[in-house]
Design a protein around this nucleic acid. Sequence first.
DNA 1: TGGTTATGTATAAGAATCTTATGTATATTT
DNA 2: AAATATACATAAGATTCTTATACATAACCA
Lengths: 113, 113
Amino acid sequence: MKNSQLYKGSLNTIIMKLLEENGKMYGYEITQKVKGITQGELNITEGALYPALHKLEAEGLLDVEIEKVDNRMRKYYKLTESGQKETVNRLSELEDFIRNMQSLVNPNPKLEF
Amino acid sequence: MKNSQLYKGSLNTIIMKLLEENGKMYGYEITQKVKGITQGELNITEGALYPALHKLEAEGLLDVEIEKVDNRMRKYYKLTESGQKETVNRLSELEDFIRNMQSLVNPNPKLEF
DNA sequence: TGGTTATGTATAAGAATCTTATGTATATTT
DNA sequence: AAATATACATAAGATTCTTATACATAACCA
């Protein structure tokens, strides 16, 4: 994930948002999608991604479905019902986070009327 | 820091930005400032703050100056020259991070004019 | 006047998340 | 034939944080 530590803690939210948007995705597809959307700035490593997917599955937020395409295995993940509800919360937390960080970095735009 | 993991990795940037803005601050003051700006949403714990300050000092990004006020010790921190330069980088990284997260969460706002 | 809260700094144990390195396997491109 | 792309997986270690504890003074309240 580049060298910035800022992305720490945001991977779960990213995964869940992408699944909410795309229905179902497999791990490698997620890495490529993120790379594309961020124009190469954010590269999710497998060492971070797969454990994260397994944990979300263990928590009951994701369901998995294995397919074989071109003789290669794919594990498609999708949000469970519980996962869909939790995604709403995570996205809300992300909005709060971004708002708070902007308040800290971009203090009082000199509210002039 | 509330329960959200999203803030992980952002503490150094927050500290440095506040010091850039306010010249010099002491630990407790930083916690109160952050609490105020975020309206109580972000509470920096001492267990996170003090080790972070010590590390930034060890890296040569902060200078420390001890004062005694009302018979209580205060350690005022300020950015070194190197710290000022690094703050610019960190803030730039934060902007990239926020932009990338918004791209991921708020995909193509259906550009309608 | 005694107890709680606020001010102020500090560290240690453990949790959570990530990087880096490695491993396995097939398909495609050069 | 070799390198790259596709696809998943895990283990060791680094980093950052939470939680708990510790010490000390000042201020407020009952």
